[in-house]
């Protein structure tokens, strides 16, 4: 008798249990399974019904509202949307490039600042103070201001050899701000690793740096992956802010189209383009994290 036990688990559960061949479920177990199946069926029915009611009502209110026709024509004119999609995609390559460059730099700088702020070495004291001031300042200033300061302020200095390229300066401003945020996220992760882990590593003879590298950081970074992903998604969107310096990104491209036709569909298209990147990214990371937790942690059904 080989029947999978009801308690749904998709983890390497064996498809059949071998109890020496003589086992078959008792009357009590069979009744229990019957009851569970009935309960599951009822739950599914209720979920379907309530979803239908709530979503149906919302849809009905939307479609029957007096302005629905106008709204659809101004925001959801799909034919027009697909017509201007290439321009938005072209703009989006700016967002994507900036995200890759800024994201990499932010990860490195943020990590360095977090390590500085959690270090206890006396030689690093001045850097630790600088790092703290840096985080305090740039976390507190609206990013728009930083972009304006860097984008218009640095060229105004008229120093030879410094770039006036607004794209470079804009990216620099984004990196400055995000490094401050990310440093704090990573630092909080480092602080959650219990001191006993450090003690164990040091007692094995690992140096301070080796302890960080092999014991503390791997655990810390895994714990802060969800909030770091939050910051990455925000970064993808915020790269658009450099458009105030005159760079054409996806949002700016949509704005240009909108200004020509007074139709807002380009904005919706831009939103969809952003979602097409951020949603899969979030799902993928969640999946990776879940796998890693399942591998390392004892399986519980609670």
């Amino acid at each position: 008798m080989a029947k999978k036990l009801g308690r749904g688990s998709n983890r390497a559960a064996p498809s059949s249990y071998d109890f020496g061949g003589s086992w078959s479920p008792s009357e009590i177990e069979l009744a229990r399974r019957q009851a569970r199946r009935a309960r599951n069926k009822r739950s599914a029915l209720i979920a379907a019904l309530s979803s239908f009611l709530v979503l149906g009502t919302l849809g009905l209110v939307l479609v029957t509202s007096p302005g629905w026709e106008t709204l659809r024509n101004t925001f959801f004119k799909w034919a027009y949307g697909f017509e201007i999609l290439p321009k938005i995609l072209l703009g989006f390559t700016t967002n994507a490039t900036l995200t890759v460059i800024a994201g990499t730099s932010v990860a490195l700088i943020g990590l360095a600042i977090a390590l500085l702020r959690t270090s206890r070495s006396p030689a690093l004291t001045p850097f630790r103070i600088l790092a703290t001031v840096y985080v305090d300042v740039f976390r507190g200033i609206p990013m728009l201001l930083v972009i304006l300061l860097v984008g218009f302020g640095i060229p105004a200095l008229q120093i030879k050899g410094l770039t006036n390229n607004v794209l470079v300066l804009g990216t620099l401003a984004v990196i400055i701000t995000y490094s401050a945020y990310v440093a704090e996220v990573i630092r909080s992760g480092i602080l959650t690793v219990h001191p006993s882990q450090r003690a164990a590593a040091r007692s094995l003879g690992l140096s301070n740096f080796q302890t960080l590298r092999h014991v503390v950081l791997p655990q810390a970074l895994k714990r802060v992956t969800p909030p770091l992903l939050n910051d990455l998604v925000a970064l993808i969107k915020d790269t658009g802010l450099v458009s105030i310096l005159g760079v054409t990104d996806a949002v700016r491209a949509a704005q240009i189209q909108t200004a020509k036709t007074f139709n807002y569909t380009p904005y919706v298209m831009a939103a969809i383009v952003f979602l097409l990147v951020t949603i899969p990214l979030t799902r993928w990371t969640d999946r990776m994290l879940r796998k890693s937790y399942e591998r390392e942690n004892a399986v519980g059904q609670a």
């Binding site: 006993s196 007692s203 094995l204 003879g205 690992l206 390392e296």
Partner: peptide, 27 residues
């Protein structure tokens, strides 16, 4: 010196084998 703690303090992100070879390979 070898030290063993009350609360084990194994490294949870490493397998048993990785825990054991960490010090020999790195130190």
């Amino acid at each position: 010196l070898g030290m063993v703690f009350q609360s084990f303090n194994l490294f949870p992100h490493m397998t048993v084998l990785e825990n054991v070879i960490l010090a020999p390979t790195k130190v």
